[in-house]
Structures are given as C-alpha cells and as structure tokens.
Amino acid sequence: MLGGVKVLSARDVRRAVPMRTAVRAVREAFRELADGSFVLPPRQVFGDGKVLVMSAYHAPTGTAVVKTIGIALDQVPAIRATVVWTGNGTQLVAEGSSITTLRTGAVVGVATDLLAAADAERLTVIGTGAQAPDQVRAVVAARPIADVVLAGRSAERAERLAQELRAEFPEVRFTAGTEVDAAVADAQIICCATSSATPLFSVDALPEHVHVNAIGAFRPTMRELPRDLLADATTVLVDQREAAMEESGEIIDAVTSGTLTTTALVELGEALTTPPTPSGRTVFKSVGVGCQDWAIAAALEHSLHRVAG
C-alpha cells in the first residue's frame, strides 16, 4: 500500500489472475469493444518504439487503465511496464510486464479457441523470450495439447524453457530446437513470438491445415509472417483493424502490395459475435489494444476485492 494506492508485484498478478481467468476476461472485453463500450485512444509511440503508452476507458463502469512500456530488445527482460487502474474508489499500480504477457497470451487463447481445430494436439512456439510461456499456457487452456515444439535461435535457451514448462505441464511432451521449418511442418497450431524483421518461415513449410498466431511484431518494420500466408489464409483475424494498419508490419505490407484488402480483415470482437467457419490455414495477428490491459486489471481488482470481502 502506498498512500492509499495498492501496489502489486508480478507474483501478485499471477496469483490473482490465472490464465483461464485471463482468457475469459479478455474474451468479454473484446465483445464489449465490438459493442462500443470502450474508448481506446491510439497508442502513443516515442523514441522509435522504445516507449509506448496505452490507455482504455470502460464507459459502463467508468473505470480506466493506463500502461507505460519501455522496450529494449537487446536486454533481458526486453519489456518493462507499469499498469495503473482507476475506478470504483480504488487505484491499483501493478507490475506491467506480467500483465502484458498474460493478456497477450489470453488473446491468443481466445483466437485459438475460435480458429484452431477442436482436437488440435500439436503446438509449435517460435521464440523463447518472455512472451513464450504465456503463449503455451493460453493454447493449453484452449486445446488438448499433447506435444509442444519450442523453436528459438539458441538451443540452450529453448531447452531451458522446455524444462521449465515440463515442470508446469508434466502431461505435455516438450521438444526444443532451432530449425523453424522442421518445427512448423507438423504443427496444428503455431505461435510466433519474436522481434523478427523478416518472415520466420515460408508458406510452403506449413501444413495445409494450421492455425497461426503472430504476436511478436509490433512495429511497421517488423514481420513474422510471409505475405503468401496472408493471401492464402481463409481467415485473417486481427484485434482491431485500425491498430493493425498502424502497427502490424505484416498487415501493412500485405495491404500495400495488394495481397490483402482491409475489408478481408476480421476483428476479434466481430468474430466472437459471428464466429467464422475455419478451414485450411487461418491467421490471428495481434498488436495489442488497451482493452486487454483493462480486462486483466479489472480481473485483478475483482480478485482483490473478493479476498478483502
């Protein structure tokens, strides 16, 4: 407690909001986003993407969240953030990196539940940084995953992450490696969580039926997905069209080249109201929007209020 303000650590966040709770909260937030319940100012970007500020106001409850993020891709951790949630007579200040990875995992859980095969058992995660564990947790919460391949530039780091996740999910088989094409060849679900400026694989390396989540590229100069995948996909889902066209290198490139039209993009909130019928290859591209942070912070506040009551 600091001057009447509750200050919460990453451990506090994790204890209060497990992944399944986060997925439910984020799903409901996107439904409300589609209904017009949120005011979402554009993300502010400073220093060529080194500092970001995101905010969201939830009109029905009069509550709001503001997140500041510092990004240094050459450091570990690469993301440092703080989330401030205000409303209902309460103000919370929470460690924001944990909220960022949790809400990013949660939105992938929502999208995966919409688009991946119901019996999907094989997951490949490309990238072994801070976002990777919550990508695994979210997909495991959404589908009966039995096998996970972790692919990264460092075999040692990939194996270290595999060991950590084996302890958390003893029923799942984890394999670590560095060969991306081999890692995606038999996948039913793929999660891309890197800062790559060039596509991670070719469309020819993918199975004919696969769902791909891409959350790592958040600048116009970054691209994890090949252009041909966006042209080939039966559904291209985004968290928000406006945000994708401002920040997603893959979407901007595909639209600019004429490979994709903005009308072909399906917003997540729309898909929750009218679920698509997935087939072949499907894609979810997320750059993150403020209602996700609000959803996790609101769930955190609700959990603390319940405990206090």
Rank of each mutant, 00 (worst) to 15 (best):
R281E: 12
G177S: 14
M222Y: 05
D204R: 03
D204P: 02
S154H: 02
G62Q: 10
R157D: 01
P276G: 03
L33Y: 14
R166Y: 02
A132P: 07
A142I: 09
E168A: 11
V53Q: 09
V139F: 09
K67E: 01
A158Y: 07
T124Y: 11
V39E: 15
R11P: 02
A243S: 14
V107A: 05
D35G: 08
A116H: 03
I296N: 02
G249C: 13
R80M: 12
Q292V: 14
M245T: 05
V140W: 04
T277A: 15
G96W: 01
A116R: 04
H302Y: 08
R166T: 12
L237I: 02
E171K: 01
R166C: 08
A56P: 07
A142N: 09
A142T: 09
V7F: 08
Y57K: 00
P275C: 05
E179I: 03
T86V: 15
V7Y: 06
G109K: 09
D228F: 01
T101L: 07
P41H: 10
R153H: 15
T124A: 13
A217R: 04
V203L: 03
P275K: 00
A158N: 11
A158T: 15
S55F: 05
L73Q: 12
T82Q: 07
V149F: 15
A233S: 10
F218W: 12
G4P: 08
V76T: 13
D74K: 09
D12E: 06
I69Y: 01
S303H: 00
L225H: 03
E247A: 05
A106C: 14
T259I: 12
P226N: 05
R137G: 06
M1V: 13
T263P: 03
T234D: 14
T128W: 10
E267T: 05
G152N: 03
K50D: 15
I296R: 00
G280F: 12
T282I: 00
S9G: 13
G216H: 03
R173I: 13
E32W: 06
T234G: 10
R223A: 08
V13F: 00
H209L: 11
T90F: 00
A16T: 03
R153I: 13
V283P: 03
A155Y: 13
V148P: 05
V172F: 03
G105F: 11
A231M: 02
G47F: 14
L300M: 02
A25S: 15
S98P: 02
R24D: 14
V23G: 08
I79H: 15
S9I: 11
A185V: 09
T175D: 15
A176W: 01
T256I: 01
L92C: 04
A158E: 12
A142M: 10
E171Y: 00
D232M: 02
L115G: 03
P278Q: 04
L52T: 04
L8Y: 00
M1A: 14
T178N: 11
M245H: 04
R241I: 12
V13Y: 01
T235V: 15
L304I: 11
